[in-house]
């Protein structure tokens, strides 16, 4: 019994570490959707570019990993600003579907840029020690523990930021009623730019963490696709939903890999999507998505 429980906990803990990274990337989706009503399909590519940039600084330029990490964050802010200013801002006022299609185009541009600069080989960071830590019988590598720690720390920071910081409240105000926010002196353009910056930063961090676990390659862009069900599951416009959705998708992925994979190979890749469909049939707005408040 104890062995079975440990086996179960092993998958839950690994799933939680991976899920916390998904939650971080999901936060990027939610931020942009909340403030601009745009579903950014290039989120996965932000993640890939961040991972490649950090890898290049660490391996090619021989910088310390943590220095590379910090420089990548600055690079992500610039990337987010550039995308917002050059690609999205000229499209303000255009139909939402056009803007979403532009983000789809952006995925190909960023992917092409990565292949052009860094090629398409899968490369490894090899920064963290490989031997596992024993947590009451559950074995996790340093990498998973670090990933979980960094992700939960950042998620807590963002939750507090949106709840208590004035800029966070301004951002939520813009998401709630853009014109009213403008009438109160909140700069909508600045909020949009901030959203894109934060989204690029959290994606890059997610990319670096996933890249450490699975290697850095152009396929990292597909993590964005995997996070999308987590976002929809939690509710597209809910920060809490993104966090819980990310964790749930991570845990489901690893539990299905542990228990169902021997019977149905590669079920872990689709299992979270099956659960997503079932949840949406019962709660179309996702678990925590905002339903319109109607006064009676």
């Amino acid at each position: 019994m104890k062995g079975e429980f440990l086996f179960f906990m092993q998958f839950v803990m690994t799933g939680l570490s991976m899920g916390s990274i998904y939650a971080l990337v999901a936060l990027g989706f939610v931020l942009i959707y909340k403030s601009t009503s745009i579903l950014n399909l290039a989120q996965g590519e932000f993640l890939m570019v961040g991972a490649y940039f950090c890898l290049s600084l660490t391996i090619d330029f021989g910088l310390n990993f943590f220095a590379s990490f910090a420089i990548t964050l600055v690079f992500s802010v610039v990337l987010g600003l550039l995308v917002e200013r050059l690609v999205l801002r000229p499209l303000i006022g255009e139909p939402i579907i056009s803007v979403i299609m532009v983000t789809l185009g952006l995925t190909y541009v960023l992917r092409g840029f990565v292949i052009m600069v860094w090629g398409n080989d899968i490369r490894q960071f090899n920064v963290f020690p490989q031997e596992p830590i024993d947590l009451w019988g559950v074995k996790l590598t340093y990498l998973y523990v670090w990933s979980m720690g960094i992700s939960f720390f950042l998620l807590s920071v963002f939750v507090l930021f949106f709840k208590y910081a004035r800029t966070g409240i301004f951002m939520r105000a813009v998401a709630d009623h853009q014109t009213a926010a403008q009438s109160m002196g909140i700069s909508v353009k600045r909020v949009f730019a901030t959203s894109w910056c934060i989204a690029a930063v959290v994606s890059s961090i997610g990319g670096i963490l996933v890249g450490n676990i699975a290697g850095v390659g152009v396929d990292l862009g597909y993590v964005g696709l995997k996070v999308l069900p987590a976002v929809i599951f939690g509710g597209l416009d809910s920060i809490l939903g993104a966090i819980i959705g990310g964790l749930v998708v991570g845990v489901l992925e690893f539990l299905s890999a542990g228990y169902l994979d021997p019977y149905i190979p590669a079920i872990n890749e689709v299992f979270p999507f099956i659960v997503l469909v079932l949840v949406l049939m019962i709660k179309p707005y996702g678990l925590f998505g905002t339903e319109e408040i109607e006064r009676v």
Binding site: R166, F170, R172, A173, A181, M184, T290
Partner: peptide, 16 residues
């Protein structure tokens, strides 16, 4: 009003 913000947050939103 910002419907999904509390009264307190609505007031804070005006303090830019």
């Amino acid at each position: 009003v910002f419907e999904n913000l509390t009264v307190h947050e609505n007031l804070v939103a005006a303090t830019r």
